[in-house]
């Protein structure tokens, strides 16, 4: 296990190194005067020149890159061209907000998708099976931006059950903010003992989480169903079946455990996919996380922010895959 982890971490470092080079190189190679963007609208030539010196853009690209890497090691990701705030600071504030809804969506997709898939497999070729199959296909076929708009239309406009936008009710925002301990809103509210705040946040998270959960839910349901069906045809199950073990016992005792591995294997990808989908969901629900920030930065070509977001998404992708591989080894001893 340990050599495996070390190999994975080394891979991560290597990946991040290449990513920084690529993104950094791109941000310098692409048209778009970084200094002019930093100065902002109606910049004067002499101001742009001044900013160029201030940002060290007069140096050769490799020197700029080395400087960037040097600062990166100290946790400094540069200054946003658009807001002039340290990127690392904004990242620290916004990433937890997005991770919170993404993890909740992941949790929900497993909590609902797995039982759905299991029941469908257990009741194979019944109406339940077809229904799960249909729901699963529909869930993965809904374009996320369309789903988010639909949810808004139905649950806010027509039914009025859920709030339209934001992280907390505007009335709550007139109060002083909670102390940021973990930076995960729900946990911080719990730590502060403010259940009202917590409930309000959960209420606001509901629609964004549902939008994000749709695709992984469909994947988990479909994949758990098909991998269960496959496992139940495996030789050892056949053997057990032949020796007179009951079908239900077989199913839950042996089948389920072995069918989990493929389901786990798509979790890492689902994480990455959901983080990208926050770009859309957070925009539509006005949820101030990393996706909202990324989109705003995309349209203003805020390179330092884009570099940081690429790095973070890459790192999360690799890390979550590593965690999942560890879990899979634990669940399924056949994997070497």
């Amino acid at each position: 296990m340990l050599p495996f982890l070390i190999r994975r971490l080394a891979g991560l470092v290597f990946l991040l190194l290449i990513l920084t080079m690529l993104v950094f190189g791109l941000s310098r190679a692409l048209p778009g005067d970084v200094a002019a963007m930093y100065v902002g609208l109606k910049a004067k030539p002499e101001q742009i020149q001044k900013a160029r010196l201030e940002l060290g853009l007069d140096k050769p690209v490799h020197v700029q890159y080395l400087r960037y890497m040097g600062r990166l090691l100290k946790g400094d990701l540069g200054i946003s061209l658009r807001t002039h705030r340290p990127v690392a600071r904004d990242l620290k504030e916004k990433l937890p907000l997005s991770l919170e809804i993404v993890l909740l969506a992941l949790l929900i997709s497993i909590a609902l998708g797995l039982p759905m898939g299991v029941v469908a497999a257990f009741k194979r070729d019944t109406w339940i099976d077809s229904a799960v199959n249909m729901i699963g296909s529909a869930a993965v076929s809904l374009p996320i931006f369309f789903l988010a708009l639909l949810l808004q239309l139905v649950f806010f406009n027509w039914l009025g059950w859920f709030p339209l936008q934001g992280r907390i009710s505007t009335m709550m925002e007139f109060r002083d903010p909670l102390p940021a301990v973990t930076r995960f809103g729900l946990i911080d509210a719990l730590l502060a003992g403010d259940l009202e705040y917590m409930a309000d946040m959960a209420w606001h998270m509901f629609l964004p989480v549902v939008s994000l959960a749709s695709i992984p839910l469909g994947l988990v349901a479909r994949l758990s169903r098909s991998s269960l069906l496959e496992v139940m045809q495996a030789d050892y199950i056949m053997a057990a079946r032949a020796s007179g073990v009951g079908e239900t016992v077989l199913f839950f005792r042996y089948g389920l455990r072995n069918a989990l591995s493929p389901v786990l294997s798509i979790m890492g990808l689902s994480m990455a996919l959901m983080l990208l989908n926050t770009f859309y969901v957070e925009q539509i629900f006005n949820y101030p996380g990393i996706g909202y920030w990324a989109l705003a930065s995309i349209f203003s070509l805020d390179y330092p922010v884009l570099v940081a977001i690429t790095l973070v998404l890459g790192a999360i992708y690799v890390l979550s895959n590593t965690i999942i591989d560890v879990l899979r080894r634990w669940v399924d001893p056949r994997i070497k």
Binding site: L19, L22, L30, P31, L276, I298, I309
Partner: peptide, 22 residues
């Protein structure tokens, strides 16, 4: 597989921006 891994972990939106600016 290394090259593939790098490309996969690169958000398509960012690639799209890079290409559209060119």
């Amino acid at each position: 597989s290394r090259i593939g891994e790098i490309l996969i972990s690169f958000p398509a939106v960012l690639i799209a921006i890079a290409i559209t600016t060119v």
